[in-house]
Computed example of a mutant assay.
Amino acid sequence: MQLAAASGLMSLVLFLVALAVVAFLAGGYWMTSRVKYREPPRPRPEEQPHLPPDGAVHEVRENRESQEVPQIPKGGRPLTPYELTNMDTRPSASKDRPRWSKGSSGSFGGGGLGAH
C-alpha cells in the first residue's frame, strides 16, 4: 500500500523528465536552425535553369548493339572482368526493335514457359 500511495517525489521526477524532453526538443530545434543558417541561400528566379534557345530537347530513339566480346585464342588465358570494362555500344543498322519470344515475359522468373 505504501508504494501505491501518491508521492510528491514521484510527481517531481515526472516533472523533471517532462522538462528534460522539452529541453531536448528545444535543443534539436536550435541545432537545426544553426545548420540551416549556414547553408547557401536558395537560388533566385533568374538563377534557375532555362530552356535552350532552340527549344526543348527531344528524345532520340535508336537501337544500340554492344561490341563483340573478344575471342580467346585456343590455349590462351581467359579474360578477367577487369579486362572487359568500358565495352561501348554503337548504333544498330537494324531499325527493327528487339522483341521477346512469344509467350515469354522476357525477364528471369517472369512466369512464362520460356523458349522451347
Rank of each mutant, 00 (worst) to 15 (best):
A56Q: 06
E65Y: 10
E46W: 13
G76H: 04
I72G: 04
P70L: 05
P78G: 07
P78L: 08
P53H: 11
T80Y: 03
Q71S: 12
E65H: 12
A56Y: 01
L79N: 06
P45H: 00
K74T: 09
P73C: 04
H58T: 08
Q67T: 14
R64I: 07
E62K: 12
R38M: 12
P78V: 10
P73M: 07
R44K: 14
P73R: 06
Q48H: 07
P43W: 01
P43K: 04
A56I: 10
E47K: 09
E65P: 00
R38T: 12
E68H: 01
R44N: 09
P73N: 07
P41E: 06
P78S: 10
E62M: 13
E46A: 11
E68L: 01
V57N: 04
R77P: 04
P40Q: 06
R64C: 06
E65D: 10
P70Q: 06
P73L: 00
G55N: 02
V57C: 00
R42V: 08
Q48F: 08
P49C: 00
K74E: 12
P49G: 02
E59L: 15
T80C: 05
E39A: 15
V60I: 15
E47M: 11
E65C: 12
P49M: 00
A56V: 10
E62S: 11
V69Y: 05
G75H: 03
P52F: 01
G55D: 02
E39Y: 08
V69Q: 00
K74D: 07
E68A: 04
E39L: 15
Q67N: 15
V60L: 15
S66C: 14
P52L: 02
P49K: 01
P43D: 02
V57F: 02
H58G: 03
I72T: 14
G55R: 00
P73I: 05
P70Y: 04
E39W: 09
Q71A: 15
E46I: 11
T80L: 06
V69H: 04
R44H: 08
H50M: 14
V57K: 04
P45Y: 01
P52M: 02
R64L: 08
P40K: 06
T80N: 01
E39T: 09
R44A: 07
P73G: 04
P73W: 03
E68M: 01
E47G: 11
K74W: 04
E39K: 12
E59D: 13
E46G: 11
E68V: 01
L51F: 12
V60M: 14
D54P: 00
P73Y: 05
Q48I: 00
H50L: 15
P45F: 01
P45N: 03
N63R: 07
R61Y: 13
R44W: 08
L51H: 14
Q71M: 13
P41R: 09
P70F: 06
P52N: 10
L51K: 11
N63Y: 05
V69T: 02
R42S: 11
E59T: 14
P49S: 03
E39S: 12
P43C: 02
R42K: 12
